[in-house]
C-alpha cells in the first residue's frame, strides 16, 4: 500500500513539475504564443488554404481536422521536450539514479500534457464555432471521449519521440518533422480516401487519423457506438507508441549505464 501511495505521489508531483518547467512559466506570454496564437493562426491558414481548393461549404472539414491537430502540440512538443530536456538540463542522471518506479515516472511526463492537449482542442472547437462550425447534431459525450483519446494517443507518440530524443542532438528537429507529418498524413487537411495508397498506408499507423475521422462522423450526427471501433483503434495506437517509448527508454537507460554515456552528447 505504501509503495502504491509513493508511486502515485511521484506520478503527480513529477507530472506537475515537469509540466510547469516546460514553459518556464514566469510569464504567460510563452503559453499564449505557443498554445493559443500559433495553433489558431495555423488553423486559419489551413482553413483558407482548404476552402480555396474545395470551396466554403467544406470549411467544417478543415476546422474539425485542425482543431484535433492542436492535441499534437501538447502531445508531441510538450511530452518530447519534457523527456528530452532531462538530458539537456542535466537532471537525467538524478532521475536514473533514483529508486522511483520507472513506468510511473515515464507515464507521468505525459499526464498534464494530455489534459493540456484536451484544453487546446476544446478551445479549437470554440474558435471553430465562431468560424461557422455547427455542433447542433453532435453527440457531445462522444466528442469529449474523442478529444480525450486523441490527446492520449498523440501523447503516446510524444513519449516515443521523447525517448528517441534522448539519443538525438536536436529535439526540435524530431518534433517539428512529426508535427508536420501529422498535418499531412493524419487527414486533418486531406480526404484520405482520395489519396494514393502510400499516403493511406502511412496514415493508418499514425495517431489522430481515427480521432479526426471519429470527430467528423460525430459532428455529422453519428452515435458513440458507430465510432467506437475507431476510438478503440486510436487508443491501441496510442498505447502501442507509449509502450514502444517506454521500452526504448529502458534500453537507453541500460545502454547508458553500461557504456557510461548517460550525459554524453
Amino acid at each position: 500500500m505504501r509503495k502504491l501511495i509513493a508511486s502515485i505521489r511521484i506520478f503527480i508531483s513529477g507530472a506537475w513539475l515537469s509540466y510547469i518547467a516546460l514553459f518556464n512559466w514566469t510569464h504567460p506570454a510563452s503559453y499564449i504564443a505557443s498554445k493559443i496564437m500559433y495553433p489558431f493562426t495555423g488553423m486559419l491558414f489551413f482553413l483558407y488554404l482548404g476552402i480555396s481548393a474545395t470551396g466554403k461549404d467544406t470549411a467544417q472539414f478543415y476546422i474539425v481536422g485542425n482543431a484535433l491537430q492542436i492535441a499534437a502540440l501538447s502531445g508531441i512538443y510538450g511530452v518530447t521536450m519534457t523527456i528530452g530536456r532531462e538530458r539537456n538540463m542535466g537532471t537525467l542522471i538524478y532521475l536514473i539514479g533514483s529508486p522511483a518506479n520507472r513506468f510511473v515516472i515515464f507515464m507521468g511526463r505525459a499526464f498534464f500534457n494530455v489534459l493540456d492537449g484536451m484544453l487546446g482542442v476544446v478551445m479549437g472547437f470554440i474558435v471553430g464555432t465562431l468560424l461557422g462550425l455547427d455542433l447542433s447534431y453532435t453527440n457531445l459525450l462522444g466528442l469529449a471521449l474523442t478529444i480525450l483519446i486523441s490527446s492520449f494517443s498523440t501523447c503516446g507518440l510524444g513519449l516515443m519521440l521523447g525517448s528517441i530524443s534522448l539519443t538525438a542532438l536536436n529535439i526540435m528537429f524530431v518534433n517539428n518533422t512529426f508535427f508536420f507529418l501529422l498535418l499531412v498524413f493524419s487527414g486533418a487537411n486531406l480526404q484520405l480516401d482520395k489519396m494514393p495508397v502510400w499516403v493511406q498506408s502511412i496514415s493508418k499507423f499514425l495517431p489522430l487519423t481515427r480521432s479526426i475521422q471519429s470527430a467528423r462522423l460525430l459532428i455529422n450526427g453519428a452515435t458513440l457506438t458507430e465510432v467506437s471501433s475507431l476510438l478503440a483503434s486510436e487508443l491501441i495506437i496510442g498505447l502501442a507508441y507509449a509502450l514502444a517509448g517506454f521500452t526504448f527508454f529502458r534500453w537507453f537507460e541500460f545502454q547508458a549505464r553500461k557504456r557510461g554515456t548517460l550525459e554524453a552528447f
Binding site: A29, A33, T41, Y48, L49
Partner: peptide, 18 residues
C-alpha cells in the same frame, strides 16, 4: 516568446498560397 505567434499570420497575409 512571441516568435511562434508570427509564423502563420504572414503565410495568410502574405498571400503565399491563396
Amino acid at each position: 516568446m512571441w516568435i511562434n505567434a508570427f509564423e502563420f499570420p504572414m503565410y495568410i497575409l502574405g498571400g503565399f498560397l491563396f
